[in-house]
Design a protein around this nucleic acid. Structure first.
Lengths: 223, 223
DNA sequence: CCCTCGTTTTATGTATACAATTCATCCTGA
DNA sequence: TCAGGATGAATTGTATACATAAAACGAGGG
């Protein structure tokens, strides 16, 4: 029977992903193979494999013979990402409204209840994690693994950019209200309403998008 | 100034991709690192890197210490893929109807005109390539690189399965008729109609889906 | 005859050494 | 002073050797 021993490369990939999601690694940061090898006490080989995997998922960029950096995207590209995310997350919500089990509905309902506390105390870090849980619950609630993985992947790629979004005063309460709308439709089994609510929640446009951009640290956008 | 020398690993990845798309490598086929290294006269290192990249795109599966095989998917997973593909390609068509340049509209129109000849002569190989061009034109016509890449990736992953679809008598003419409907809406600038036509073209269901399954060689489905 | 356990074999995972290219520096010359 | 190019250093790409885990095989017992 196979033991399924995790490889060092997999561990490295997961660790670096975490670093990017948590902001310890920022867009534009260079990923030096030797430094990483020393930091983790491994050779360059597993480091390279981890970098390749991250590159394939779009989280970092590797240009031949020029090393790897955490992906820095352009503003038009960021807009494109939100355009697609809104569509994908909307589809997730639509399917979730029809397919979620009773346990799953209870679970996402609990997530939103938990969020109310964090929003009240303006505990941004906790709300950030809760927000992640909320979206994840809808991805898996779609009961379509392919859709789930694609949406999650895009969510990951935009994570370094959405991270600062909550710093804007009032954004947390807006976000929570939108989450509630989605869950309401979800529990009612109204697929169209859930899809539209989710679409609007993700597809920040106009003034809201300008506000969002204003939260981005310098160097996060290229071009 | 960087020369941008392509690496061996990149060449290997592209070659192996081609092999999978063309059916030279079939789902379930084992990818032995040593054999590949010998075949291409390189060491195992670039072979491994190519395999990791292919794994990240979903075209092959690498399980730790158990080697790599061309992805074999289950029937439920295949259904999921078509469900998502229909949505994504529908979105591409919707955007393309609004955003395509005049040159792009002319180009896709030419593609369909070319297809009529292949359908008449029942030249399946040529039609297969033409069909690829048609879909590609709509992906890029969306003018959303993120959407384009995601849709193309999923298209690639399903390529080994859609390849045999045209073998069914009459399918070529059906396909062509559907393409024409899409282009018609596209040229008219009717986004909703284009999206729906594309959705229906991709989202094969019911009897048509059963017919499609019947074209699959044995061993292409798992479970 | 089949199942189980231990050994052998083979392939993958990792480390290290070497090659090739890119980038930085410095020198030369206009 | 600045442009251009050559030279050196540093980093990535590749090859090879070794470590280790999983598969294959065979012997022994039930």
């Amino acid at each position: 029977m196979p033991k399924q021993t995790p490889t060092r490369a997999d561990f490295l990939r997961r660790t670096l992903e975490e670093d990017i999601f948590n902001g310890r690694l920022k867009p534009g940061d260079r990923l030096d193979e030797q430094s990483l090898a020393q930091r983790f006490n491994v050779s360059r080989t597993p480091v390279r494999e981890a970098l390749r995997q991250l590159s394939a998922s779009g989280l970092i960029e590797v240009r031949p013979r020029q090393g790897a950096v955490v992906s820095v995207i352009t503003l038009p590209r960021l807009i494109e990402m939100f355009e697609v995310m809104a569509e994908l997350e909307g589809m997730c919500a639509r399917l979730a409204a029809r397919r979620m089990t009773e346990a799953e509905r209870q679970s996402i309902s609990d997530v939103v209840t938990e969020a109310e506390g964090f929003a009240e105390q303006v505990d941004l870090d906790s709300y950030y994690i809760n927000n992640w849980k909320f979206h994840d619950a809808i991805y898996s609630g779609s009961h379509n693994h392919v859709l789930e993985e694609m949406t999650r992947s895009l969510h990951h790629r935009t994570a370094p950019y959405r991270r600062h979004q909550l710093n804007r005063p009032g954004r947390v309460h807006e976000s929570l209200a939108e989450h509630k709308k989605v869950v309401e439709a979800l529990l009612a089994g109204d697929a169209e309403a859930a899809g539209k609510a989710m679409y609007r929640h993700v597809n920040v446009q106009g003034d809201v998008f300008a506000d969002f951009l204003s939260t981005l640290p310098t160097g996060y956008l290229k071009g």
